[in-house]
Design a protein around this nucleic acid. Sequence first.
DNA 1: AGCACGCCGACT
DNA 2: GTCGGCGTGCTC
Length: 727
Amino acid sequence: MKQDSPPLLAVPVLVPMPAERPYTYAVPVGMHVEPGSIVRVPLGPRQVAGIVWDSACETVDAKKLRPIVQAFDCPPIGKEMRRFVDWIAAYTLSPPGMVARMILRAPEAFDPEPWIEGLIRTEAEPDRMTAARARVLEMASDGLAWTRSGLAHAAGVSSTVIDGLKAQGVFETAMIPPRPVVAAPDPGFAAAALTGDQEKAAAALRESGAKGAFSVTLIDGVTGSGKTEVYFEAVAAAMDKGKQVLILLPEIALTQAFLERFQDRFGAKPAEWHSDLAPRMREKVWRQVAEGGVRVVAGARSALFLPFRDLGLIVVDEEHDPAYKQEDRVFYNARDMAVVRAHIGDFPVVLASATPSVESRVNASQSRYARVALPARFAEAALPDIKAIDMRRAPPARGGFLSPVLVGHVRETLGRGEQSLLFLNRRGYAPLTLCRVCGHRFQCPDCSAWLVEHRFRGQLVCHHCGHNEKRPEACPECGALDHLVACGPGVERIAEEVVGHFPDARTIVLSSDIMGGVKRLRLELEAIAKGEADIVIGTQLVAKGHNFPNMTLVGVVDADLGLANGDPRAAERTFQLLSQVTGRAGRTGKKSLGLLQTFQPDHPVMRAIVSGDSEAFYEREIAEREKAGLPPFGRLAGIIVSAATRAEAEAHARQLRRAAPAASDIHVLGPAEAPLALIGGRHRFRLLVQGDRRSDMQGFLRAMLAGGPKLRGSVRVQVDIDPQSFL
DNA sequence: AGCACGCCGACT
DNA sequence: GTCGGCGTGCTC
């Protein structure tokens, strides 16, 4: 701020609330604030943290003007971040305050971290020497400042020993700054030896990194081709330039292995950022990112809203992963927002995936993105042999779901002392329960989806809204006892079948239903990696990132699952999931096998997975979507409006059709149409709107929001298929 | 009467 | 998003 500018009397402040624009507050005499300052302001009956914004102050009723309570002693939110917030608000049609709220998610971090009391050895000697005292003096002889508990711990003595020495003047106290949450990673710590392809790819990344300007590079490499090692070179290059780096991961809570690989390369772990962080840690990371102390963050999508001081690179690993989509409050796709963030900050972004999203492939083929392909697995990592099991020719035994062919391979694998993974992306015991007498089907009273039986818990559960009830003995419709029958398999049921075949094998079921949360899950994954299970039955959790060195057989119980559900991305998603799951095998050079149980062995997805030829699959996928009249990539947007009930959704649809007669398609989607219509909160129904241009979509929605009955709290906007209209 | 719940508007 | 106010309806 220039010294000669007149003192500000009032400033706009974005408050964490769905207001369309910043509110205006008075700046008390003597308080200094500038755009980006984090301030405490009164809002109605309470006080909230807000961000001083840059938009021009408009005149506001002087009676309404209230003063800022406090300007936090905190680095201001930078101009790039403020533009980013405004951009996302405009793009997602969300109130800017709600976007700003995502930055302000660490309330305690706005005050500086307190300095801690340190002890430094003085010249003075203690009156009497004891063994414990000697150990302490030995530790502290380095002349550095120690914390009381740190020194006690290091010397293996109780802290009363320290207090005694301090009282005799053996130590003087000095305030020391808070410890960094992570050690500084060293870009030159252990540069990897890269193979020919990898070196070429790394060189391309280093080159765009050296320029430092905005660019998007898609690294497209099969599982085990060393994508990570390659983009680590981009990370090293950005660090060499003194820039901060953000690595986005879809589900970081489970990717302990990633942090270790990072440490092997850079000598220290990156700072983590995800929803499971302990509050204390969260604050420290936020603050140190803002102050620039933290150089590299590995985080979930919300890490995009950390207040980096000098961000110079974003890597989006597994860029195709649906976990990058936030589908409540502000709807956004972190992969696309990372591209936007990089554009605003004018630095490179790297998208990495073994199975890129179709839109990223299109962007690459249209030269909006650079593409670097890594076609081969390196060193000992061999691709698994993949085969389809035609379930029409090799059907399971009556009442079972596993083909004798698959069971045979599990037996052989057991015999070799190696591990098998049976993958089925369905939690619980059975997806549908019906009465054999009257045909009654158990449905969710709130959202009409079928209730999934969880036999272990003795419950029927709705996977859309979480509704659950006790599994009854009798049919609620006709009262018949003992005639309820479970239809179809879930992981629990497959486990039951497996135990029937192999009663002596160590079998484990892994799904998000597991008791004990992320921590327990992590332990189980580690136990499996150490060989403490023979047969693992799991949902998509097991497909993510973890390495099981002794896993040589992957059987997909129902490879067709997910192909037939109205999602325009069904084939793409299935391809990505199957490719990720089968990639769990063969990571140590042992001969390994992937088997797909399918009724459609000739389906393009199965052919692509079995042959390993994804090129043909992508080409076909793009052509298919054009044929189906789905948005041609590069231009089109889909928008989803959420509603709590079907009636409400239909009302929105009518209103939208009136407001936007040119919209090509407006569909009401119920819970059964998931995963396109993933259900969040109380919004269970959605409209999918398709049109020719994103700006049209925004126009339609604005028109809809402006006129007609109030759609209070029920309208949300989501862009699903939108490759690149944002630049 | 007392209060739980839902709806609605205000919030600078 | 969060709060308070106000109406409706039900009860230790």
